[in-house]
Structures are given as C-alpha cells and as structure tokens.
Computed example of a mutant assay.
Amino acid sequence: MSTEEKPHILLIDGMALLFRSFFATSAMGHYFPNAEGTPTNGVQGFARHTMTATSIFKPTHMAVCWDMSAHTFRNDLFDGYKANRPAPAPELVPQFDMTRSVSELIGWKNYGILGMEADDLIGSMVETWDGKAEITIVKGDKDLLQLLRPGVQIAFMKKGYNVYDIYTYERFVEEYGISPKQFIDTKAFTGDTSDGYPGVKGIGPKTALKLIKEYGSVEGVIEALHELTPGMRKKIEEDIDMLHLSRKLAEIHCAIDMNDSIENLAIPIYDTEKRELIEREGYSMIVRQADSLFKK
C-alpha cells in the first residue's frame, strides 16, 4: 500500500449479523445442527454474511465488534434500557460463543468489552481512525447514523447476504437537513422503542427533526420553550428529565482506547489450512461460501 493510499477498514456489528442470520433461517425451522446436535444456523450465516461483505466492499482491514453482556453502562443510567427485549431463543444461546470462536478461527480481529455495546466500540474505532482510514460499517439499524462523517459510510443490511442501503455523510445531510451529530438530539425527543426508552411522549420523528432544524439541539429547544405552542411546551416540560436522559442513552460512547496497530486488523488469508480447520469444525456452508468467494 502506498503512503498516499488510506487503508479501508470494514467494521462489523457481530451480534447484528448473528441475530439476522439466525432469524432468517429459524423462521423456516432450519437450524443446521452439527454432529453434537447443536444449532449452527446463526454461526454459519454470520460468517457467510461477513465474507460476502468483504467481497463487496473490498476492505484492506476489518474488525468485528461484539456486545459482551446484556448489562451495560446504559442500564445503570436507566433500568428500562432494552428491558422490553425477549430472552433469546434456546437454539440461539449456544451460538453466541460459537460465533465469536468461528470469527477468531477465520482470523478476523474481534473486540468486546464488558459494560459497553458493540456500537460504542464501533464509534471509538471511527474516532480512532478518523481521517487516517476510509471506513465502512455493516449494521442493521439506524442508531449509528450519528457516526457519519467524510470518509465513513454505513451499509445497512436489507435483504439476503448482498443487498445494502448505503448512507454517506453527504446523503444524510441531504435527506435530513441536519448534521449526523444532531441525529442524537432527534432521538432524545423520539426515544427508541427497540431500546426501551421513551423520549418525549407525543413527539415523533417529523416533529423532532423540525425542532432540531430550527433550534439546533435539545438545549436550544429548551432555551426557546417560550416560542413553542402551549401544547408542545407542555409535552416537553412534562418529560424534560426523560428528554435529558434519552439524549445520554442515544449518544454513542466514542472514547474507548481502540488504538490497535493497523497490522492487527489486516484481512486474513484464506488458504488450505484455514479451509481444513473450518471444515473440521463441521461448518460446511462456510467452506462452500469461502470457496466460491475466494477461489484462486
């Protein structure tokens, strides 16, 4: 790689790919049990999805980021954070550790920190490599839009293994009319039903966006409460504590020390030895996918 050419880092939300892969096949009753009878549908789907992403985006380096536990610092801020999520299916439970093991077996660099979410690790990677690398993030939901900046794009999974909706900094600004950082403030008002925090009751995405476009931030809206309609002012005043808390919950923590050497993120070489290792573990679908994508 020349000195002028920036590395291209692919950042994968491992749990998002695992869940997506599990539900895509379990809905049809397909679990692909191994020789011990343990389901592997999520494991193999994760690896296939990640391999396909490397073939589409052609990164020079990559990392897989993981949620390590259900309890994070956000639960300390708000008891109800993600409390509405059902317990994972019993067929999925053994696949959490199996998937991380397969990711390591393939040679991908994996990160996970207790008390932090994968989003926080991804955000910290973006902060660490900002300006020094091109970054593509593979993700399932819109939480990470706040991380967009020049040189960073987010590929939202849409269909199958190879259909993505790609957001760049320019596309976001054109569609939303605010900066990606201000997306945090809109979420403070709307809350997030999947994460279980309410924001301000009665304020939806359109109203939240209008408020942030006009006043710039949560604090800007609060300072201008006297300019709002009585109904809007009442909604915000009644939920002002939750508004502040929701903003804290919505903001991705980007200050974790992720300053790993770029060499540690290099894309691993898929060779005969690696193929045999994966095959020996019984992951025939991963082997087939790798053969079709990386055959010489």
Rank of each mutant, 00 (worst) to 15 (best):
R20V: 10
R20S: 11
R20Q: 08
R20L: 10
S21E: 06
F23P: 06
F23V: 03
F23K: 02
A24W: 01
A24V: 08
T25Q: 13
S26A: 14
S26N: 06
S26T: 06
S26V: 08
A27K: 12
A27D: 07
A27I: 10
A27G: 07
M28Y: 12
H30F: 14
H30S: 09
Y31P: 00
Y31I: 04
Y31L: 15
F32T: 13
P33Q: 10
N34T: 07
A35T: 09
A35I: 10
E36Q: 15
E36G: 09
E36Y: 10
T40E: 10
N41T: 06
G42H: 02
G42V: 01
V43F: 01
Q44I: 03
G45H: 00
A47C: 14
A47P: 00
R48N: 11
H49W: 01
H49E: 02
T50F: 15
T50E: 11
M51F: 14
T52W: 02
T52D: 06
T52G: 04
A53R: 06
T54I: 11
S55V: 01
I56R: 10
I56V: 15
I56S: 07
K58S: 12
K58E: 13
P59L: 06
H61G: 09
H61C: 12
V64H: 03
C65N: 08
W66S: 09
D67H: 02
D67S: 03
D67C: 04
S69D: 15
A70E: 12
A70Q: 11
A70V: 07
T72L: 01
T72M: 01
T72Y: 01
N75M: 08
D76A: 14
L77N: 07
L77I: 13
F78W: 10
G80M: 02
G80T: 03
G80Q: 01
Y81I: 01
Y81Q: 06
K82L: 05
K82R: 09
A83M: 04
N84S: 12
R85P: 12
R85N: 05
P86E: 12
A87L: 12
P88R: 02
A89S: 11
P90W: 02
E91P: 07
L92E: 05
L92G: 03
V93H: 01
V93I: 15
Q95S: 05
Q95Y: 03
F96L: 14
F96I: 09
D97S: 15
M98H: 07
S101K: 13
S101I: 00
S101L: 07
S101A: 15
S103N: 14
E104D: 15
I106Y: 15
I106K: 09
G107K: 09
W108P: 11
N110Q: 14
N110C: 15
N110V: 13
I113W: 01
L114A: 10
G115R: 00
G115V: 00
M116Y: 14
E117W: 07
D119S: 11
D119M: 11
D120M: 11
L121Q: 15
I122H: 13
I122W: 13
G123E: 07
G123C: 05
M125G: 08
M125R: 05
M125K: 05
M125L: 15
V126T: 11
E127G: 05
D130P: 00
G131T: 06
G131V: 05
K132V: 02
A133T: 02
E134G: 11
I137A: 09
I137C: 08
V138F: 04
V138I: 13
K139I: 09
K139Q: 12
K139Y: 13
K139N: 12
G140R: 00
G140S: 10
D141Y: 00
D141M: 01
K142H: 08
K142T: 09
